[in-house]
Structure formats: C-alpha cells, structure tokens
Simulated assay, not measured.
Amino acid sequence: MSEPLARSPRPLWPHPDDVVTALRTAGCVFAEEEASLLLEVARTPDELTAMVARRASGLPLEHVVGWAEFAGLRIEVDAGVFVPRRRTEFLVARAAALLRPGAVVLDLCCGSGAVGAALAAAVPGVELHAADLDPAAVRCARRNLAGAGGRVYEGDLFAPLPAGLRGRVDVLAANVPYVPTGDIPLLPSEARDHEAPLALDGGADGLDLLRRVARSARAWLAPGGTLLSETSEPQVPPALRALRAGGFTATTAHDPDLDATVLMATRE
C-alpha cells in the first residue's frame, strides 16, 4: 500500500492581531490599516516580522513597503526620499485642469516624481521634465517617470535644466519645501527623522525656496504658462507678494477636506 505524500509544514505567520498590537504599541494611529497592508505585501513570515519591526521603530510605512499611494498611482519611495502627501493631490488636480496633450510640464523639487507621474497619468501625451537637488530623489523619480518618458535632472532648481526648455513650460509644478526652519523639530518623527532635511526646510519663514523660484520662473514659462506651488494658509500673503514681485498674476485655491492650499501664478 502506498504511503501518503509528506507535506511541508505551513509557515507560522504572525497572527494579524499580533501585528496590530505591535503597531499600536509603537504608536501607529492607523494600526489596523497598516497591519492589513503589511500582511498583504509581505512574502514570507520573516519578511513580515522584519517589516513590522521597521515600522515599529518609526520608519514611515511608505519606506517600509517601498511605495506610496498617490493620485491612484503606486509611487516608488526609497529610504530617505520625501513621501508624497495626500494633500498634494489638490495641486495635481489644479495643474491637470490646465493641461492638454503635448503640453510641457516641469516638476521642480520633484522628490520621488509623484506630481509629474500623476500629471502624466491624468493627461497622457504631455512632455514631462523634472528636477531635484537630492541624488536619492532623482534616482527614485527616474524610475517613477520612465513609463511616461519623463526626463529627470539633478541640480539646484532651474540650474540643471536644458536651455531648450526655457520659455516653453506650460505648467510648472514647484512643490518646494515650505516648513519654517524653527518648526522642523515640531514635525512628526516620521518626517523629521526619516526624510531629507532639504525636502522639508523652507528657511526662516518657509518661503526661501518659493522666492527663488518666483525670481526665475518667468523665463522658463511659456506665455500664459502657470506656476503652481503648495503652501500653508498663514504663508499666503507673503507668498503672493513674492509671486507678484516676480511678475506674475497670482491667486490661491484651498481644499478644506485635504487641508491643502495652492498658489497659482500666471505669466501674462
């Protein structure tokens, strides 16, 4: 009589409740949702255990799993790279409304390239360019924008851009850092300890980078082109002054549900 086939024992996965408890103990506000995601993406029990430990140590969930959900896309986010915030989807929506196929888009201070990727997905056929000072962000953005044919440059603001782009940009999405230097210690540890400081620090009042962009952006925009940037509500008056000093007609829009404020500056 034949013997039954021997079966390998089923791997002992951590119980979902144990994952939730570990995350909640570590202070994760959305422990149940995060546990569900980690259980979904982990390929082995050991990998799940390691992921839970990394998250419990304070590493952003997006850095643990290697991607962030943004505007319906899965954006790769490497360790140390700025994690795209959900509120920035408001900037994407405002920018997408200005685009048509064939338009030229520049994602400045692009980080992972999330804004550029979302705009290319919303309006297929745009000519997409992006730039960032952080080499880690540039490597990440190149992967995220490759499918859209995006070209990503490494350097400070407009400095690395090709001269042929000057005067051709229809939409310039400049999601520059705007946290005042003195407020950096008040940020959640996920941002303060695990994202590059240059992706957060906007100078004494948070507007240093915006002022620099405002002084130079006009030369890169096509006639009628628009610069869009995110800011906080208290920063709106000085931000508008900076944009108008740069020769723009500037307005703002606010989404209370996302707590998002976007500056829109048009070159006449």
Rank of each mutant, 00 (worst) to 15 (best):
E3I: 12
L5R: 15
L12K: 15
P16V: 14
V20I: 15
R24C: 10
A26N: 12
V29Q: 11
F30R: 15
F30M: 10
A31F: 07
E32H: 11
S36C: 13
S36D: 07
V41K: 09
R43T: 15
R43I: 06
T44Q: 08
P45A: 08
A53C: 10
A56L: 08
A56F: 05
L59G: 14
L61G: 03
L61W: 03
E62A: 15
H63R: 11
E69K: 14
F70D: 01
L73F: 05
R74P: 14
E76Q: 14
G80P: 08
V83Q: 04
V83H: 04
P84Q: 06
E89H: 11
F90W: 11
A93F: 03
A93P: 07
A95R: 10
A96S: 09
L98V: 10
L98S: 02
L98K: 10
L99Y: 04
G102H: 06
A103Q: 05
D107H: 09
L108V: 09
C109L: 05
G111V: 10
A114N: 06
G116Q: 05
A118R: 06
L119M: 06
L119F: 03
G125A: 06
L128I: 08
H129K: 09
H129R: 10
H129Q: 05
H129L: 08
A130E: 01
A131Q: 04
D132M: 06
V138D: 00
C140N: 15
A141G: 08
R142T: 13
R143S: 06
R143V: 02
L145F: 03
G150M: 03
R151P: 12
V152E: 00
G155P: 11
D156K: 12
A159E: 12
L165S: 07
R166T: 14
R168A: 02
R168F: 04
D170N: 12
N175K: 07
P177E: 01
Y178T: 13
V179C: 04
G182M: 07
E195K: 13
L198N: 07
A199Y: 00
D201K: 13
D201I: 14
D205Q: 10
D205R: 13
G206F: 00
L210V: 11
V213H: 00
V213N: 00
A214Y: 00
A217W: 01
A219S: 13
P223N: 06
P223R: 11
P223Y: 04
G225T: 07
T226M: 04
L227V: 14
L228F: 08
L228W: 05
T231D: 00
S232N: 07
E233S: 12
P238Y: 00
A242D: 02
R244L: 03
G246E: 00
A250P: 10
T251K: 09
T252Y: 04
T252S: 04
H254R: 15
D257H: 12
L258F: 06
L258M: 08
T261K: 07
V262W: 03
L263K: 13
T266A: 04
